[in-house]
Computed example of a mutant assay.
Amino acid sequence: MRIAYFDCFSGAAGDMIVAALSDAGVPEAVLREAADGLGVTGFGLRFERVKRKGLAAARFVVELETGAPQPHRHLHHVEKILDAAALNAGVRDRAKTVFRRLAEAEAKVHGTTIEKVHFHEVGAIDAILDVALASFCLDYLKVDRVVCSPIPTGRGSIVCDHGVMPVPAPATAELLRGVPLSDVNVESELTTPTGAALLTTLASTFGPAPAMRLDAIGVGAGGRDLPNRANVMRVLVGEADGVAADEVVVLEANLDDASPQVLAYAAERLLEAGGLDVYSVPIQMKKGRSGVMLCVLCEPGRAAACEETLFRETPTLGVRRTTMQRRVLPRRFETVRTRFGPIRMKVAEGPGGTQASPEYEDCREAAIRTGTPLREVILAAVKAWSPGGSGE
Rank of each mutant, 00 (worst) to 15 (best):
A305D: 12
G156H: 01
E272I: 04
V159C: 01
V219S: 05
V109F: 05
A12P: 07
T338D: 01
Q70Y: 03
R321I: 08
S188I: 08
D277L: 02
D93T: 14
A303Q: 08
Y265T: 00
V232W: 11
H120G: 14
E189I: 00
F6E: 07
A253L: 04
K286C: 00
G111I: 00
V159E: 04
P282M: 05
L310F: 12
R269P: 04
K53I: 09
T322Q: 13
I343D: 07
E48Q: 11
G54W: 04
D130Y: 07
P180R: 13
E104V: 05
C148H: 04
D126T: 09
E65N: 00
M16D: 06
K287E: 07
L310Q: 12
Y140D: 05
V237D: 14
K287V: 05
L251F: 11
E334P: 03
D277T: 09
A127R: 12
P330I: 15
A95H: 10
K383D: 02
V382Y: 10
G178K: 14
L226W: 08
L329R: 03
V243F: 14
A105P: 14
V179H: 09
E252P: 05
A86G: 01
D130V: 02
E187M: 09
P180Y: 12
Q284D: 11
V296P: 08
A107K: 13
N254T: 04
P152K: 01
N88S: 11
P227Q: 15
I378Q: 00
A12E: 01
E174T: 13
G178L: 10
V131G: 14
R59L: 02
T335Y: 01
H77V: 08
T314P: 00
A68P: 04
L45Y: 02
Y279R: 03
I114M: 01
K80I: 02
V219G: 04
F99R: 03
P260I: 15
R2C: 06
E239K: 15
F333Q: 04
G388S: 02
T205S: 10
D246W: 03
H118K: 11
P208R: 14
P168W: 15
L138C: 10
L82Q: 04
V78E: 02
E272V: 07
V347C: 09
Y279W: 13
D246P: 11
A245R: 12
R213M: 01
L310N: 13
P193G: 00
G14R: 01
F206K: 02
R369S: 09
K108P: 02
I81D: 08
F340R: 11
V109K: 07
V146Y: 12
A95T: 11
A34F: 14
A57N: 06
T153M: 11
A253M: 05
R229T: 11
E308T: 05
T200M: 07
E313K: 13
M16T: 01
I158Y: 05
A24G: 10
A305N: 08
L75I: 11
C363A: 00
E361K: 03
F99I: 03
R213P: 00
V147N: 10
V262E: 07
R339L: 15
